[in-house]
Design a protein around this nucleic acid. Structure first.
Lengths: 204, 204
DNA sequence: TTATAAACAGGATGATCACCCTGTTTTGGA
DNA sequence: TCCAAAACAGGGTGATCATCCTGTTTATAA
């Protein structure tokens, strides 16, 4: 039986996840440089020794956040809904609308976690840049693949899948940038309309 | 006549501009937080006292950089070429092409200075956010105004100028984000094609 | 010429930060 | 049961950074 002098319960995986959660949150609202490891330690209730044990450097922590949190957000927000959509174009419209809905409910815009970190870290470190570029590519590929599937079903024949994918990611990223800076989610909706309700729009 | 014990020549405005130049450069490649005032002092050959005399805080320096450098880049890159263009759509295409040309010549992508700082500073400080949002708005207004002028000449009747302007800024900002992260300016060209060469494109 | 303020120099300072080190506790397998 | 490794605690450390302060030099206006 556990004696009363058992003071600690080791939960390495739980502690790791707690650190990643809080760090991802701080990175999203303050960015990499404005987030201190002290902030992370206090917020996640982790000692300096434990933090260093799981993540030897701040860079290692950031890479884990990007690979295990940021990438996951992109997959859950974009790729999964897209695969379940009836078409590429419809899926993209649904994602734009879903994100705009969420932003309006929460009342403020923190921006796209991938873009936030990409801007701050892409030029700072080659390792950061490589991982971030990989997520962007995965994102574009998911959209292009869906569009190619549509085309194999005989639809959207005159569309270049790569160009469509890049433009959708660009439109979304840029719209989120503006929405974050203006703190106005209606800019996202405005850009979303450009994705074409009928056949006479920019992106149609 | 100037005696030989005249050791210094005061040039407050020149020194101010030199500081702004170097700071804008550092902000563009490293960002706000990764740029130390020591970096600025060494690079621009300015003493701590002089720097503090012209810009009492780092925030004041950053605000000056945004208002006197970043805003100017947007005006020179976007608004002036746009006003001289034959149409809004054509002007936008020209700017995309001009930027892509420059990026290819220089061989690397540092990104859009406005977006770079907007991502890092928008949520950090209300004053930063306000100034940055103002530049985005000015940018959008310039595009929308040009489109409205086209419409008064009977062209592009079925286009919403605000929507067009927001989408163009978003497409450009997002394309630059991707190009910067991938260090591949061809992504900008790919997105530029979405602006419509004939009449069957996303943005046409 | 002289007084006053602006312009500039350069070191001091306190706070912060990422990282490290030493030691203790817990865990799981031999 | 025991032992080695993993997990964790917490204080220390050198470096860096933004800001400040005191003093000196230059410009300007009376």
């Amino acid at each position: 039986m556990p004696s009363e002098r058992q003071k600690r319960t080791n939960d390495p995986e739980g502690m790791r996840q707690r650190v990643l959660d809080k760090t991802a949150e701080f990175f999203q609202t303050r960015g990499f440089h404005a987030t201190s490891l002290g902030d992370v330690m206090t917020a996640s209730g982790v000692s300096g020794g434990a933090l260093h044990h799981h993540f030897p450097t701040k860079k290692a922590l950031a890479l884990a956040v990007i690979e295990e949190r940021v990438a996951k957000v992109v997959r859950r927000t974009w790729m999964e809904p897209l695969q379940n959509a009836v078409s590429a174009r419809d899926g993209v419209r649904l994602v734009f609308a879903a994100v705009a809905d969420r932003l309006e409910r929460q009342g403020f815009v923190r921006g796209c976690p991938l873009n936030n970190l990409a801007h701050e870290l892409s030029l700072a470190d080659p390792d950061f840049r490589a991982v971030l570029a990989g997520i962007f590519e995965e994102w574009r590929n998911a959209i292009a693949d869906k569009m190619r599937a549509d085309q194999q079903a005989g639809r959207e024949i005159d569309v270049d899948p790569e160009r469509f994918a890049a433009s959708v990611v660009a439109l979304y990223s840029g719209a989120m940038s503006m929405a974050k800076t203006a703190q106005d989610s209606s800019l996202l909706r405005l850009c979303a309309r450009e994705l074409g309700e009928s056949g006479r729009d920019m992106l149609n």
